[in-house]
Each structure stands twice: as structure tokens, then as C-alpha cells.
Design a protein around this nucleic acid. Structure first.
Lengths: 150, 150
DNA sequence: ATTAAAATATTGTGCATAACAAATATCGTT
DNA sequence: AACGATATTTGTTATGCACAATATTTTAAT
């Protein structure tokens, strides 16, 4: 197939995928009565991880001040605990509460479930090709982004 | 491969893809000194299309009032023309100016270029599998979204 | 033909998101 | 002990977006 035609198809596909994935994220956040920011923040935690404000901000590519407020919300909703780090009292140790842990586990499970459901709609012989193709796509995208745009 | 494992991989991949595609959109908008909303709006136009406020709002899944303001910006920047539709004076006919047309053409070309570049980083034998795999993924995602979340 | 209802775009307003700057507290180094 | 660097929080501001109210025009009903 002509590479330009393929490129056009790929462009349209990634465009649609972007829209759909965003929609999916929104839905999942709604289900659990979280804002999108809270949802994304929560999903950053492994179930026993402890992070400080700044590292979360960096991971989410948001400012520390923004993060303070997002975590405010999660503390308010009792999903995370925020306490002073006695090894370095400038830091806040942010970690999941029991409630938070159970939600994160549930979310992770649901997240995988969705994708398993999606996979079940795709012929099994196509699974491996799909994964490797996506990995290629992701690597190529990474490379494109890394090299800095014209 | 175990379907749960595959589902987990797929989940992580779509997550990363989402982040990267968003980043890509942001970059492209920045290059042309447009807000993301303006960028997305502009890319909705075929080069000789005429739309009214509401239809654009629907396509972009935004409120008409929001669209009024986005188009304000594009009119300000002289990319689109807004004039009363004499067949139905309630409507505004929004269309690309010459400047807008040339930008849209340029954007479309750049958009395809990026994806061709990406494709060139992937072995050619993988192109067709990639496209079909993505189509499957998209269809499955659509189905999941359509059936309404639990 | 007149009037009520619906459709369209705009404007005013309020809320959420996010960044930046200033203030505060702590740490590390000299 | 003092100064500069670092982490967080708070105050302020800008942007993105929706909803409600308004103005204009069209369509439908009587």
C-alpha cells in the first residue's frame, strides 16, 4: 500500500483513538466521583507507594501548587493521607489510605477488565500483532516527540 | 499469551499512547500560535466547507457559546470569515479565509507527514498489520463506549 | 394574518483548572 | 550562625468551559 495513504489512515486512526481514549478516561473518573485530575493522580500510586508533592507534580506534568490542591481534594475525600516526612520536614509524605488502596486496586482491575473486554472483541490471532504494532507506534511517536518539533 | 497479561499490556499501551498523542496535538497547535481549541476547530474544516456555529459545536462536543468565542479568536486572527446566512438569518456562515485555507492545507500535509515519518520508523511489513490492528482496537473501543458504562 | 413556540447566536456570569509569584518552613553548606 | 537552596502552601490571575438570559429570526398553530 502507498505509504502516503497509510500515513493518512494512521493519522485518522490516532486522531479517533485519542478522542475515544479521552472519553474513556472521563467515564472512568465519573464512575468513581472523582475529577479527572484526581483520578489521574490516584492511578499514579502503586498500592504501597509513598510520594511527595513535587514528585507527583513532575509525574503528572503539573505545577506543585496545582498538586497541593488536587491532593487537598483527595485528602478531603479520604483517599490519601498527607503527613510530614520526619526525615526531611519540608516534604509531605503522600500515601494511600486504606480506602484509597482499595479504590486503586479496584480501578486497576477495572482498567484491565475493560481492555480484556476489548480484546475479546478481537480475534485472538490478532492479539499479539496488535500489541507489537502498538509498541512500534508508541516507540516511533516517542522518537518523534523527543527529537523536538521543527 | 495469557489474555489478562495481554489486557494489562494493552491498558498500559493505550495509556501511553493517549499521553503522547495529546502531547503531539499540543505541539502542533503551539507551532502555529493557536490555542488547542482553535487548532481543533480549524482542522474540522475541509478547505471549502461552510458551517454554522451549532454544527461546529456539535462536532467538537462543545457548547455553542464556547464556540462563539473560539470562532471570535479565529476571526480575530483572520483564519475564518463569519457572515450572516441570508437563507436563514439566524445562522452564521463560518468558512475559511484564504489565509485559513492555506493553513489548513499546510496542517493536513504536516499531519500526514508526521505519520509518514513515524511509519518510516516501522518495518514496512508491519504497516498493514498496524492499521488493521488499530482499526480493530478502535472498533472495540467504540463498542465499549457505546454500550454505556456500568 | 397573528401569535406562540422553537431555533440560533451572542453576552453575562460562575465554576474548574492551571500557572505564577510571594510567603513560610526546613535543610545543607560555609 | 548565616545564607542560599528546596518543598510546600496560599494568594492572585488567566483560561476553558457550561448554563442562563437575551435578541433575532423562523416555523407552526390557530
Amino acid at each position: 500500500m502507498n505509504i502516503n495513504l497509510t500515513a493518512e489512515k494512521l493519522a485518522n486512526l490516532t486522531f479517533s483513538l485519542l478522542a475515544n481514549c479521552q472519553e474513556k478516561e472521563v467515564r472512568l473518573a465519573e464512575i468513581h466521583n472523582l475529577t479527572q485530575a484526581e483520578f489521574r493522580c490516584l492511578r499514579l500510586f502503586g498500592s504501597d507507594e509513598v510520594m511527595n508533592n513535587k514528585s507527583i507534580a513532575e509525574r503528572m506534568k503539573l505545577s506543585p501548587s496545582r498538586l497541593t490542591r488536587i491532593i487537598d481534594g483527595l485528602v478531603e475525600k479520604e483517599y490519601v493521607i498527607r503527613e510530614i516526612d520526619n526525615n526531611d520536614r519540608r516534604n509531605m509524605k503522600v500515601s494511600l489510605s486504606n480506602r484509597g488502596k482499595s479504590l486503586v486496586n479496584q480501578l486497576n482491575k477495572a482498567y484491565v477488565d475493560i481492555h480484556r473486554e476489548i480484546l475479546m472483541d478481537i480475534d485472538e490471532s490478532q492479539h499479539t500483532p496488535l500489541i507489537t504494532a502498538l509498541m512500534h507506534l508508541l516507540a516511533a511517536l516517542d522518537k518523534w516527540l523527543a527529537k523536538g518539533v521543527v
